[in-house]
Amino acid sequence: MSRDDVERDTRTRRQVLAGVGAAGAAALAGCQSTGDGEGSGDELSGTIDIAGSSTVFPLATAMSEEFKSEHGEVEFNIQSTGSGGGFANHFCPGNTDFNNASRAIREQEEQQCADNDVEPVELTVATDALTVIVNNDLDIDSITVGELRQIWAAEVETETWSDVNSDWPDEPLELYGPSDASGTYDYFIESILHAGDEEYSHLSGYSGTEQDRTIIQGVEGSENAMGYLGYAYYSTNKDRVKALAIDDGDGEPVEPSLETARSGEYTPLSRPLFTYPAKSSLTEEHVAEFARFWLENATSEELVAESVGYVPLGEDDQQEQLDALEAAIEDAGN
């Protein structure tokens, strides 16, 4: 039931209750629940248990919410357990229908699943990409992973741009990024700072913020600024700041774009996000239908990019994944 409807027909009652206080209002909490079942005329019902990566978790809940608005009788239990924890403790023992993962399933995990007769079906649902941005007026177009590490590592003393690369201006660095509460921050540490032989920690002398908007603003406003943020937010602000091409050590910098992120060329700052339905669960109509629904909506800018902040699938990839899913469903049915 939509919030507006509820508000309209409960307004007068709410105001009466307001006098009794919030506690009193809580009293009537249960009253409307019976009117819940939005009959949409289909017979899909059952429970879908999902566990796994906390990175994919917001996407999974967004999809399930959307799915539930069409199929009110299907119940969801969604847990954020980490990709590996999800496989080891929930999916492979056969307790969940889907496992989300921010990396592909590992061999040992497949082995564990096979031991329990659980067969995972790999579906790519989105791409997570980070973009390193600088001011439009700064005369730099690409950066290597090593240079990024040097700038953002707490262990390395870096004052000016020229400390990193002598071709760069002798100006002090000004850094913007997501706060340490964000998943983007963790991913940056994992892919840049922990990627080398030595593990660096993220420096704390930068402007950390919860709001992507502030990062863009900060970099836009200062010529010597650098920042990083999720690709989805950058893509809607392309004219305000400049994205750096990333050189992962092979001497060929790659520009961030939907194509390079999807194709996997844009390393190490992009990674595909997966969900793994169990083949045996796909025999159940509601599970199969939800998997289809997820893939059909995986290209949606609104659901994937705006609400969760990931790069949606391309049309071709979507078709490929759908084909894989249909094949698995058919295979499971026999």
Partner: peptide, 9 residues
């Protein structure tokens, strides 16, 4: 138990 870095197993 709940994070993303778990190696599993």
């Amino acid at each position: 138990v709940g994070g993303d870095v778990t190696g599993g197993g």
